[in-house]
């Protein structure tokens, strides 16, 4: 065995965990930095393959601000062996990184438009970098509306940030929960119920959607009903991913490799596949 001088996209780079942040009972954020001090530019909506020594590797979208290229954050739910092991990592521990992978949100291409972000559950994490970008250059966009649905008030992610943003006069933030508890005074119902009343001009609007596939399907339908053009809707797809570079075959959806051609797709581009079962 010898070190290979040519960068191999299947080789993880050892990064350091800076801190772990609890977001909800099953959700946490890992803040990580390169041990080599490398700057890590990425596009909002891209993801990394994160590797826990000896346990395995999973694709996790980047949830931090693209303007910050030294400290990178990933927010994930604990659902499998790798994310369970990730939750046990502490400051100073090593985590393997390959990325950034895939195609992100079309932030520059939608300048001048109203932007409606629709998030379901953990789907808020890949949308947060887009929000940072939009807010950083607020004057370049029309209305900015975030519609966020989650299971219960305890599951609301990035609560302090959402409160902070909601206090701004130029952002519309609407949160809804599937199941309320006694102290909840907000909206109850699935996120699609927020779309009909949300303040945006459908023909001027670009929608960025991320959440469970079923939630996205209904969201796109509802947006269409409001009059948003299909070519103005973008969604982030989830599929099994092993390589992240379009060669292992797992993430295929029709002719697309979701890891390489996505995860963000224009709705018009994949509509013909979305309605079909088990594609």
């Amino acid at each position: 065995m010898a070190s290979n001088a040519v960068a191999d996209p299947l080789v993880s780079r050892p990064w350091r965990v800076k801190r772990r942040i609890r977001e909800a009972h099953d959700t946490f954020t890992l803040e990580i930095e390169s041990r080599a001090g490398e700057s890590f530019p990425f596009t909002a909506g891209q993801f990394n393959m994160l590797h826990v020594h000896g346990v395995g590797e999973v694709p996790i979208s980047i949830s931090s601000n693209p303007a910050e290229t030294a400290l990178i954050r990933h927010t994930t739910r604990e659902v499998g062996p790798v994310t369970k092991a990730m939750r046990k990592l502490d400051a100073g521990d090593t985590i393997g990184v390959r990325g950034p992978m895939g195609v992100g949100w079309p932030i520059e291409a939608i300048e001048g438009r109203d932007v409606v972000l629709v998030a379901g559950g953990i789907g808020l994490a890949p949308l947060r970098p887009a929000l940072y970008r939009l807010i950083a250059e607020r004057e370049k966009y029309g209305k900015i509306v975030l519609l966020y649905g989650t299971r219960s008030p305890q599951d609301i992610l990035f609560k302090h940030e959402l409160e902070h943003w909601r206090a701004q006069f130029d952002l519309e933030i609407h949160v809804t929960v599937d199941r309320a508890i006694g102290t909840w005074r907000g909206h109850v119902g699935v996120v699609t119920t927020l779309i009909a009343r949300a303040p945006f001009d459908p023909l001027e609007t670009v929608a960025l959607v991320c959440g469970p596939e079923i939630m996205m399907r209904y969201t796109l339908m509802e947006l269409g009903r409001r009059g948003v053009r299909e070519s103005d809707m973008y969604l982030s797809m989830e599929r099994n991913m092993k390589c992240g570079i379009g060669t292992c075959g797992h993430c295929q959806m029709g002719p697309f490799f979701v890891c390489r051609d996505g995860p963000v797709f224009n709705y018009a581009q994949i509509k013909w596949l979305l309605g079909k079962a088990e594609v």
Binding site: V11, R13, P14, H53, T94, G96
Partner: peptide, 20 residues
Amino acid sequence: KLWRADGSEDHPQPVVEDRS
């Protein structure tokens, strides 16, 4: 085999399988 890493090191560095 693609690579291996030794976890007893402070920060395990992947060592790529030499195919040369």
